[in-house]
Simulated assay, not measured.
Amino acid sequence: MKGFDKIRLYGAGGHSQIIQAVSNQNGVTVTAVFDDNTSGSHPAFKNIISGARKNPDKFPHTGDPFIIAVGDNSHRVEISKFLKSEFATVIHKSAIIDPNVSIGKGTVIYAGAAVQPNTIIGEHVIINTLASVDHDNIIEDFVHVSPNATLCGLVHVGEGTHIGAGAVIIPKIKIGKWCTIGAGAVIIRDVPDYSVVVGNPGKVIKTKSLL
């Protein structure tokens, strides 16, 4: 955690539970949890504040900084447009982050993850448990790198892309924006925007509609 001793969370699902646990381990207090869909909230959360987007004039945008605690990349984009707030960064104590890494606001990095020198990580990115991001990577805004995924050196991942659990990206690959890389896929060639890729070696099985 960088620079804050209190934060607020927007989102009350399983992903938010992890962020709260990391915050507690770092001595950071979660002062409030907001979610407009409380039907899907995690049992760990009590006193969830709802109705924020229906009553934006009454929403407390000022105060402790937020983390958008939602795993879905497109939902994080929507919420980021609504929230007029400062954003914190959450980093688990066991994560290995080289000093020459740039990390954008609202990004979370979980237990056991490693991020190597000269990597640039954008805003509202998720680097999940035990993910490995090697040197000179560029990870654009709203990307989710899932548990145990491996990004070798000089990889560029476009905005909003989801890298599935255990996927491997070989060096010097460019993955476009809003792609989905399936769990366990091995990416050995560049991936166009909006592609869904699965398998070893990875193959594009469809192209998503434009967002």
Rank of each mutant, 00 (worst) to 15 (best):
E78P: 08
I79Y: 06
I79R: 07
K81E: 15
F82L: 08
K84V: 12
F87A: 01
F87M: 04
A88S: 10
A88Y: 03
A88H: 04
T89F: 05
H92G: 13
K93N: 15
K93I: 11
S94I: 07
I96C: 13
I96T: 14
I97D: 08
D98P: 01
D98W: 12
P99F: 14
P99A: 15
N100C: 15
N100D: 15
V101M: 10
V101Y: 11
S102K: 11
G104L: 04
G104R: 00
G106V: 04
T107K: 06
T107H: 07
T107Q: 03
V108D: 05
I109Q: 03
I109C: 08
Y110C: 11
A111M: 13
A111V: 15
A111K: 14
A113P: 03
A114Q: 11
V115L: 13
V115Q: 04
V115G: 05
V115E: 03
Q116L: 12
Q116K: 01
P117D: 15
I120M: 14
I120Q: 11
I120K: 09
I121A: 05
I121M: 06
I121K: 00
I121T: 02
G122T: 08
E123H: 06
E123R: 05
H124S: 02
I126G: 01
I127W: 02
T129W: 08
L130H: 13
L130R: 10
V133T: 06
H135R: 04
H135K: 02
H135Y: 07
H135E: 05
D136R: 08
N137K: 09
N137W: 06
I138C: 03
I138M: 07
I138W: 04
I138L: 10
I139K: 02
E140T: 03
D141M: 02
F142W: 06
V143M: 06
V145R: 01
S146G: 09
S146C: 11
P147L: 08
P147W: 06
N148R: 14
A149Y: 03
T150L: 11
L151G: 01
L151K: 00
C152T: 10
G153D: 05
G153R: 07
H156N: 09
H156G: 01
V157M: 00
V157G: 00
G158W: 00
G158T: 00
E159A: 00
E159V: 03
G160V: 00
H162T: 03
H162R: 07
I163F: 04
G164L: 01
G164A: 05
A165P: 10
G166C: 10
G166W: 04
G166M: 12
V168Y: 08
V168M: 13
V168L: 14
I170M: 05
P171K: 11
P171I: 09
P171T: 06
K172C: 14
K172E: 14
K172V: 12
